[in-house]
């Protein structure tokens, strides 16, 4: 049996990181990522609960929802606090719960903005440009770089969260994240602009009328998107419309 207060160690943290890669698999409406969180905590917490105590896992079954790429930060921080509590520092279960609640909300918002709102569109925009110009190596590079970025962020997150503990709150209260977000936002918008330029350059290749119609269609679609009409529905409805117009022109 392990001694109480023993350190978690890098190997067990790595075990938690591996489980966190599949965090979304246990997503549920009631507790959201709570089961995934417990799954990630289980290998690391064995070391200081004497392999038999389940209270540490049971108390983390409460509601938990964060951006999956930033969840390792919270998990690392929670493990650090649990370890410090076992080592005799004046940390209560309420403090740990407060730490979790204080971090998850802001990290969820930051993660969604950074990864879903910007990094993913950036990667996909690059991928579209490479695919249009038939550059398979570019596509492969985007795929690998994006995956490396996501996985290394999660790996960094768990070790950084564990190293910082309470200090995580201060770290994310600063302006550092905003700077990173501004850079990624700028890059995404620039690459988005490049793709837009490429698309509009290619329209006249099918005739000047196509360019004019494409301009009108872009404006109409943009108007509909602002009114929450999905782009997929605009494209679907456009298909029979175009076929009908072609049929009418063909009859003339």
């Amino acid at each position: 049996m392990a001694e109480l207060g023993q350190e978690i160690g890098k190997f067990r943290l790595f075990g938690a990181f591996i489980r966190l890669l599949f965090l979304q698999g246990l997503l549920n409406r009631r507790g959201m990522q709570n089961l995934g969180l417990v799954s990630a905590l289980s290998p690391a917490t064995k070391v200081f609960d004497g392999f038999t105590d389940r209270t540490i896992l049971l108390k983390h079954l409460s509601f938990f929802n964060c951006n999956p790429n930033f969840t390792p930060l919270v998990v690392g921080g929670v493990l650090k606090l649990e370890e410090e509590k076992r080592a005799g520092k004046p940390i209560s279960d309420e403090d740990i719960e407060y730490f979790k609640r204080a971090l998850t909300g802001p990290l969820a918002a930051m993660g969604d903005m950074l990864f879903i709102g910007n990094l993913k569109p950036l990667a996909l925009t690059f991928a579209c440009i490479f695919a249009i110009y038939k550059l398979p190596l570019g596509l492969l590079a985007v795929f690998l770089l994006y995956n490396i970025a996501i996985i290394s962020c999660r790996l960094w997150g768990i070790y950084f969260g564990y190293a910082k503990g309470w200090e995580l709150v201060d770290f994310f209260s600063g302006s550092e994240f905003q700077k990173v977000l501004s850079i990624v936002e700028g890059a995404s918008a620039s690459v988005g602009g490049v793709l837009l330029g490429v698309l509009f350059y290619r329209f006249p290749q099918n005739g000047q009328t196509t360019l004019a119609l494409a301009g009108i269609l872009t404006a109409v679609t943009l108007y509909l998107l602002r009114r929450d009409v999905p782009a997929s529905w605009v494209a679907i409805i456009l298909f029979p419309t175009t076929a009908f117009i072609a049929l009418l022109i063909g009859q003339d």
């Binding site: 837009l196 290619r202 099918n206 269609l217 872009t218 109409v220 679609t221 782009a231 605009v234």
Partner: peptide, 18 residues
Amino acid sequence: YWSYLVPAVGAASLIHLF
């Protein structure tokens, strides 16, 4: 002709996104 025009929906998606 629809396949020539459909990238315009994509262009609108890009503009909407950024």
